[in-house]
Design a protein around this nucleic acid. Structure first.
Length: 587
RNA sequence: GGAUCGGUAGUUCAGUCGGUUUAGAACGCCAGCCUGUCACGUUGGAGGCCGCGGGUUCGAGUCCCGUCCGAUCCGCCA
């Protein structure tokens, strides 16, 4: 007989009755009825009930072993007769224990594995191996593995090839803070961990590899969020030669639709996903990652107020401001306090106020009900398509803040009124990001996103147009209000690259110095190319419907970038420091 | 770096307006009883510097100040 097991704990069925078998696993629960002892044994594959008859050695031994200990049990498969448990896949049978070997005794647990008891995350992280035994987390991590396997299969089927790129590389001048690794051989010099394999994948395109992908680890020394792991995370890094923006979209739409359909029962919107220009997104949703499960859109109603006799808003429009409005259902029956709370929320978000117009049955309420004429109210109702039961929320302010605040109000109301479409993944593309923006403090024109993006209109646009009006071939893919990724058609032309950097205030020598490897490569025949890099952790989060990214990572760090299990970061020896030419300065 | 919320038994929580002798409950732990459980049931027991420091008060788990820790958000994340 095999040393540890003849079957897994999820395997035995009615057909196995009377077989002599051996199982190994963790003791999940114990139920001692005095005369008879039931033990459930768990492994990666499932749970099987074991029964120990009174007076046997097996009874005595199992009774003395704590839950979560690891045991090997020899026994005979028995039918459960009338006591079948329909909730368990193995519920038809149980194993009558004949011999028990204790492989590893468990201490008293810091939290229960068999129950989900909301233990504090600090404890769960310090005992991550126990937390990972628990059903939900164990399932999430297995699911992550299957999702990544499916991604690989789908990418390869589409003709992409997987590559590895260096982990020890050089510090990049833009973007996030780097993790640095001191060099032993070169005193005072450092490697950096890659924030993304951006330049390497572009170099692979210059090398003629055509279609690249990698499940790539990325390292950024920035503070954490619920959906952002500190330190490191994984991207599905993708790059394509001789590809237009639409080619990249088609490949990603095929992947995302297939993947999300495979791993979820929720609805997934069919390709092509909506393409929303950045400016439209900012106007209609007040942000560049709209949650499209929510139908409500923000509309500009400046013209209506400019023509009205409501002077408070009219004068704001006359002074260059805007009036933006949002109509939302299910608010007519809400209390005065509800409206006050929503207004307080808007004020907290930076609004000077939040006007409202509520279309209740037979009457119009809200702060604008009195001051506005019937004609203006009707026009607003018509413009926004409001129906009875709807409420219109209005902000008058300058162009940059009105929609942004209303966008926050939009999401807040969605939470309060439960307005999002259920069980649905709604993907969209945000396109036409501006190439440049003005730095508010210095007035300097700078890159608004990726400096490697190709400006729309190419060199001609850079030479002839107002830089702030130039769009880039830069895009984001968004799902349910979560930004999965940015991507771009790259700037593969050295002349256009130098010009773009010049507009952003950088001399050509800066380009040569900072991006030397890549610019050199572009001077020896570079294909037009572009790509994208969706966050793997965030895709798994969406598919597992988890609000916190740590629930889909086996060994995450806490918010303060510490690994509570492995005790990282940690001090190192004097010898190590000396070899690396480092001295610690205590402040 | 800033803001908000939180910190009471191993764990999850309750603890009223500052006032009841010994700060409670559930789960877990330890010891009994119990032969068909499915989160078994049942009896008993152990387990607490109420995060830490200071203050107000006749009296502080409760109020105030400071501090530490955690979560969430802002900054940051090309």
């Amino acid at each position: 007989m095999q040393k540890y097991r003849t079957h897994t704990c999820g395997e035995l069925r009615g057909k196995d009755v009377n077989s002599e078998i051996r199982l190994s696993g963790w003791i999940h629960r114990k139920r001692n009825l005095g005369g008879v002892l039931f033990v459930t044994l768990r492994d990666n594959y499932g749970i099987t009930q074991v029964i120990a008859e009174p007076g046997t050695m097996a009874f005595k031994e199992l009774d003395g072993i704590r839950v979560e200990s690891v045991v090997t049990i020899d026994g005979i498969v028995r039918s459960r007769g009338d006591n079948i448990n329909r909730d368990m896949p193995t519920g038809e049978i149980e194993v009558e224990a004949k011999a028990v070997i204790l492989q590893s005794m468990a201490d008293i647990l810091p939290f229960q594995v068999a129950d989900d008891d909301n233990s504090p995350e600090t404890t769960r992280l310090a005992y991550r191996f126990l937390d990972l035994r628990r059903e939900k987390l164990h399932h999430n991590i297995l699911r992550r593995s299957q999702i990544i396997a499916s991604i690989r299969r789908r990418m390869i089927e589409m003709g992409f090839q997987e590559f590895q790129t260096p982990i020890l590389t050089s510090s990049s001048p833009e973007g996030a803070r780097d993790y640095l690794v001191p060099s032993r051989l070169y005193p005072g010099k450092f490697y950096a961990l890659p924030q993304a394999p951006q330049q390497f994948k572009q170099l692979l395109m210059v090398s003629g590899f055509d279609r690249y992908f990698q499940i790539a680890p990325c390292f950024r020394d920035e503070d954490a969020r619920a959906d952002r792991s500190p330190g490191e995370f994984y991207q599905l890094d993708v790059e394509m030669s001789f590809a237009t923006q639409e080619d990249v979209f088609a490949a990603m739409e095929n992947l995302m639709h297939g993947l999300f359909t495979e791993f979820s029962n929720w609805k997934v919107n069919k390709p092509p996903f909506p393409r929303i220009p950045f400016e439209d997104a900012m106007l209609k949703y007040g942000c560049d990652k709209p949650d499209l499960r929510l139908a409500a859109e923000i509309a500009d109603v400046s013209d209506i107020f400019a023509a009205s006799d409501f002077n408070a808003f009219k004068s704001i429009v006359e002074n260059g401001g805007v009036v933006r409005a949002l109509t939302v259902p299910n608010v007519a029956d809400k209390s005065r306090k509800f409206l006050k709370d929503v207004e307080d929320f808007a004020k907290e978000a930076g609004a000077k106020g939040l006007a409202s117009l509520i279309f209740a049955d037979g009457e119009i309420r809200g702060s604008l009900a009195k001051p506005l004429s019937d004609a203006t109210k009707a026009e607003l109702k018509n413009r926004l398509g409001s129906k009875t039961g709807h409420g219109i929320f209005i902000i008058a302010d300058n162009k940059d803040v009105a929609s942004v605040i209303l966008g926050k109000v939009r999401l807040h109301l969605a939470d309060l009124l439960d307005l999002r479409e259920k069980d649905s993944y709604r993907f969209c593309w945000i396109v036409d990001f501006p190439m440049f923006e003005k730095d508010e403090e210095t007035g300097q024109t700078q890159f608004s996103h990726n400096p490697f993006s190709m400006p729309q209109g190419g060199m001609e646009a850079l030479l002839t147009k107002d830089p702030l009006s130039i769009k880039a071939f830069q895009y984001d893919i968004v799902c349910n209000g979560v930004e999965l990724s940015s991507g771009a058609i790259r700037n593969h032309r050295p002349d256009i690259m130098y010009k773009a950097f010049e507009i952003a205030g950088y001399d050509s020598s800066v380009v040569d110095e900072k991006f030397g490897g890549m610019i050199k490569a572009f001077k020896f025949g570079a294909p037009p190319h572009g790509g994208i890099a969706p966050g793997v952790d965030r895709m798994v989060m969406l598919l597992a419907n988890e609000p916190n990214i740590r629930e889909v990572i086996a060994f995450p760090m806490n918010q303060n970038a510490q690994d509570l299990l492995m005790q990282a970061p940690s001090e190192v020896t004097e010898k190590q420091l000396k070899e690396l030419h480092l001295k610690i300065v205590r402040e």
